[in-house]
Design a protein around this nucleic acid. Structure first.
Lengths: 202, 202
DNA sequence: CCTCCATGTTTACAGAAGAAACTTGTGCTG
DNA sequence: CAGCACAAGTTTCTTCTGTAAACATGGAGG
């Protein structure tokens, strides 16, 4: 086959190519059992090549998770449209963007919060996660300043909304938000309940 | 014919012995990469013996998850002490019991909600999960009848509290509820925020 | 032009899942 | 009571994985 001609011996940017392949496979098959060798095969490279760019399998997983947090942050920022009528509406949109992201990238989202992607090991991953968390936190602080949210400790609001959004996302991608158990539009319904507890006016 | 370590050729109750070994290992090492062979070794049988009791590795995982849901249900029922001063207090206690269970059995809890334990495959697992979910639902319905909780759709309350509790549990066992981000007692604080949105009186 | 070395490849090895074929007790039947 | 069928073990084998080590290549700097 002449497709060997396709690629020079030195790939050029194998690291990026590997992450792209892995992300694509993660997207295509929501519960794919991640194997480095398959990523290498699909990228058209020997199974040992990835080790020149990632110390081990888990380092690649952490890189994927990091990219996931960056993308999630972008989705949330985009959704937090400043000309929405209220801070409450902004919160709702941002939360739904997060859950939507999880539903569109279930494999990636699971990976981001799995124990495989240990955030205590990799500072870059930790920073990416914190940065995304900061988007939520910023919205809450802004909401408190403009009197939309109650003047309780912002950390309590943060814990509650972070947990709520993450919990809804996890349940959604596990297909556990079935209509007969939890209503026809469980995500906005649940978020409204939470927001009733967070907001000053109803 | 219980624990005679001079094991006869036929173990007697290998199925139960395997699950007990696996549960113990899961408890001992929170992110142990589950291997059937190691379970078999520790149980003192050949690596192929488990296949006489479980079709494959995942069937054992599902059985472990099922046991996890049963135990979680027991913890929650126990916590839902009927002579607590209010339904709100009962809810708080039950929710904290769930999160406490997760913190004490992080490996098992993760397994229960992982994609490995696919609840759509195994009706027994599905039933166990639903039964545990039913404990929460029952409390919410009772709380609505006695006017503790607002008269919105119970499914909305269920989605919100289920997500909140599960989210807090997941974040807690991922060590993401760090004091500087989320306060010193994030779990009760977050639950209070949610309960403010669920309860009639403040 | 030659030589270093990052980035590839090949080869090797241990450990896992699972299938198949073989072995051993044990309880049921004639 | 003899014998046998079958459930529940074991061994052996194949195919996969992650990871390490040794080898190959080709582009950049002296």
């Amino acid at each position: 086959m002449s497709e060997t001609k396709d690629r020079p011996y030195h790939h050029g940017d194998l690291r990026r190519a590997l992450t792209r392949t892995a992300l694509a496979m993660l997207a295509a098959d929501q519960n794919w059992t991640f194997t480095l060798r398959e990523v290498a095969r699909r990228t058209g490279v020997s199974h040992a090549a990835p080790y020149k760019h990632f110390r081990d399998r888990e380092e690649l997983l952490r890189e994927l998770a990091r990219i996931g947090f960056v993308r999630l942050g972008e989705s949330m920022t985009e959704a937090m449209c400043p000309d929405l009528p209220s801070t409450r509406a902004q919160f709702m949109a941002t939360a739904q963007a997060c859950i939507g992201f999880a539903c569109q990238n279930p494999g990636l989202y699971r990976l981001m919060f799995s124990s495989d992607a240990d955030k205590t090991i990799d500072p870059q991953l930790h920073d990416a996660a914190m940065s995304t968390y900061g988007i939520l936190l910023g919205l809450l602080e802004r909401g408190q300043r403009d009197k939309s949210f109650r003047p309780v400790a912002v950390s309590a609001l943060a814990a509650a909304s972070w947990a709520q959004v993450h919990g809804l996302a996890m349940l959604a991608i596990s297909n556990q938000l079935l209509e007969d158990k939890v209503g026809s539009a469980p995500v906005p319904a649940a978020l409204d309940v939470l927001l009733d507890g967070m907001c000053c006016s109803k």
